[in-house]
């Protein structure tokens, strides 16, 4: 009898159970994808998914204010900040998941496994007998309840976190700010310098014009068919994100010739010519 009562007290509605199992699975998958996705952008998106699931869980658990804050602040602001930084560092750069430190992966997995087992064991053994629900605490509304606590019991901590945020903002500015040590040169000065050095006097050539890709990352071709790195922006050059499409046109042409040769039953063109074209594409 008591057993049943306890179970009744412990259990929640079937809808919530269904929601937990479905969304919990999503959250775990999202977390795993965060860890194992090669590209940082994908990781960030998966993490955002997990966070939204968590926001739903907060709402389910009666933390309405936190649920909304989780979506607005965390998923909305913080994750966007992440995405900005990812953009800055390079969206397409994919990490190699190959481990470089010897034994690191095994140790990490071992530790993680042991830690997880310990946590689960600890929770399983904890005497979590009371399950009160937030009905009483949220009687006057969740936000009002939180506000009452924050501005009375936790007011010092609240003020301190305000100071912490200000400090963090100033810190971030200090860290990312680059003091100019010399006056920025004007356009006239730059032009004069270019003329004086006699190197690249006209404007830099435009990037490739094949309208098949995001054309900024495709080097323009020189008259002899070779691509020129100068046409691509310096940032992409440094990231190594120049895409070379010079061979594609020739390959397309070759495939076209091949097909027409098959259709018209002509002999293929001289291999020597082909070789020269291949070399040019390199």
């Amino acid at each position: 009898m008591t057993q049943q009562l306890e179970l009744a007290a412990y259990s929640t509605s079937t809808g919530e159970a269904f929601q937990f199992w479905v969304l919990g699975t999503v959250a775990v998958i999202g977390a795993l994808c965060t860890v194992f996705m090669k590209k940082a952008v994908h990781s960030a998106l998966c993490l955002a998914g997990t966070m939204i699931v968590l926001a739903v869980f907060y709402l389910t658990n009666g933390a309405y204010f936190l649920g909304i804050v989780q979506i607005v602040v965390y998923t909305g602001a913080i994750m966007m900040l992440f995405l900005f930084v990812v953009m800055l560092v390079g969206v397409t750069a994919a990490d190699s998941l190959k481990e470089t430190i010897k034994g690191q992966r095994w140790l990490a997995l071992l530790c993680g496994l042991g830690f997880g087992i310990l946590l689960v064991g600890g929770i399983g053994n904890a005497s979590l007998k009371e399950f009160n629900g937030l009905g009483q605490a949220n009687a006057n509304g969740n936000v009002e309840g939180l506000a009452a606590l924050i501005f009375t019991k936790y007011v010092y901590a609240f003020e301190l976190t305000g100071a912490l945020l200000i400090t963090a903002a100033v810190g971030a500015m200090v860290l990312t700010h680059k003091e100019r040590t010399e006056r920025a040169r004007t356009q006239r000065e730059l032009a004069e310098q270019r003329v004086r050095e006699g190197k690249q006097v006209p404007p830099l050539p435009a990037p490739g014009v094949y309208a098949r890709h995001n054309a900024v990352d495709i080097a323009g071709l020189l008259p002899d068919g070779t691509p020129s790195d100068l046409t691509v922006s310096k940032t992409l050059r440094e990231r190594g994100q120049i895409r070379d499409v010079s061979a594609e046109a020739i390959n397309d042409l070759k495939a076209l010739e091949q097909r027409s040769a098959e259709r018209l039953e002509r002999t293929p063109i001289e291999p020597a010519n082909l070789k020269r074209a291949e070399e040019a594409s390199k």
Partner: peptide, 16 residues
């Protein structure tokens, strides 16, 4: 339990 699982996944991710 879900929190513990997510925490462990996150920690392992930090490490690898």
């Amino acid at each position: 339990y879900l929190a513990a699982l997510l925490f462990t996944i996150g920690a392992t991710g930090v490490l690898i």
